[in-house]
Design a protein around this nucleic acid. Structure first.
Length: 264
DNA sequence: CCTAATGTTTGTGC
DNA sequence: AGCACAAACATTAG
């Protein structure tokens, strides 16, 4: 269930196991999930090349090859994952796009077949594939956050979810950040007071830091998002019944006691 | 059978 | 132009 912390975990997998290794063979079992080239083209281009340092921007994982070679862009949408497999008989099956690096295989798969792996020629801009992306959420300072929100006319949650504004925040992360900041998801993005903005920035960074360390969301049992699938979802702080509705087109949970619709 | 699902894109309409 | 909303994407799970 990929959110930014899951993508960051995949980046580390590549950095730990694949970086510095040379591609021996590629395997494409689901050509629909390979964009920008064909299976044959991918093999011609990548076999013999060395995996360079992986980067992450928002929910995109960029894996460059050689110093001036092509780049693979991984996107996970709802069900994608990237796993390092050393026993091919066990896990490699079901992989849509696999890089064989000799000592193991980097396997991309997506159960719902959303997302995929995009091939970027040397010198081609990632933005051609990713579309416009705001600054990565983990790098946002308070002033940047304030400026970005101040320029929006719509709702707070919608703004935080907009990848072209801030890259990397997903549905669960945003609910968590708003709950901890005691801000209602439908508050006006541009309407936060200085204190509220401070809190929002602080909680945004803290939620990211903790969930990246955990490698997933929620990072702990007392997080709001742990209540998502509960029979009787309650606020982990005050035990009030949580509210559920669609906000910004997404299922949203909040505490009606602690996250008032209007500024206090 | 129906509904909803952690993400994004595309179209429509204000 | 900016933003909200709905539907679509492909598939699984409940």
């Amino acid at each position: 269930m990929p959110e930014l912390p899951d993508v960051e975990k995949h980046r580390r997998t590549v950095a730990e196991h694949a970086q510095g290794r040379t591609v021996e063979r590629i395997e494409v079992n689901d050509p629909e999930l390979l964009h920008g080239t064909t299976a044959q083209g991918l093999g011609r281009s990548l076999v013999g090349r060395t995996v360079a340092e992986p980067r992450r921007h928002g929910k995109w994982l960029l894996v460059p090859f050689d110093t001036d070679g092509p780049t693979l862009l991984y996107h996970f949408r709802m069900t994608g994952e990237l796993v390092w497999v050393t026993d091919p008989t066990a896990d490699a099956a079901g992989g849509a796009v696999t890089l064989d690096l000799g000592n193991g295989q980097l396997v991309y798969r997506s159960r719902r077949r959303l997302g995929g792996v995009s091939y970027l020629r040397a010198g081609q801009e990632p933005q051609e594939v990713t579309g416009e992306l705001g600054p990565d959420a983990t790098t946002l300072d308070r002033e940047q956050l304030g400026a970005l929100l101040a320029g929006r006319r719509g709702g707070l949650k919608s703004a935080l979810l907009d990848q072209s504004l801030i890259a990397g925040l997903g549905n669960e992360l945003v609910d968590e950040i708003l709950w901890r900041s005691r801000l209602h998801p439908r508050r006006a993005a541009a309407g936060l007071g200085q204190q509220e903005l401070d809190t929002c920035h602080e909680q945004l960074q803290d939620v990211l830091r903790r969930s990246i360390r955990a490698g997933h969301v929620p990072a702990a049992a007392d997080w709001l998002t742990g209540q998502r699938d509960a029979d009787d979802p309650r606020c982990p702080r005050c035990q009030a019944q949580l509210e559920t509705d669609q906000v910004g087109g997404r299922t949203t949970l909040w505490c009606p006691q602690e996250q008032p619709a209007r500024q206090a």
